[in-house]
Amino acid sequence: MSEVRKLDLAWFGLVLLSVGGAMLGGGQDHGFGVTVAVALVMGLKVRIVCGYYLELPTATRRIRRAMYTFCYGMPIVVILTSAFGDILARVTGALL
């Protein structure tokens, strides 16, 4: 498959994931499972942009590590703060 074709498919996949992700969470009162699903969709979309648009696999190790830490860290933080929000509130409340 040509590089250009991959870019087109990546865009199509991102559009589907965006619409699907919006439908997943929008308008419904959801629990932890949906939060995890939304975080996974976020991580997948970011991975596609990093891989095909930003071309991170060809970048230097430092750039790759820093960007992947940020990009994959966010969905993990979404899940953790959803699961342990009360602990975060207690810790930050004591600090602030």
Partner: peptide, 9 residues
């Protein structure tokens, strides 16, 4: 930003 403000509840 999008899921944090428009999707997650």
């Amino acid at each position: 930003i999008f899921p944090l403000f428009y999707v997650l509840r």
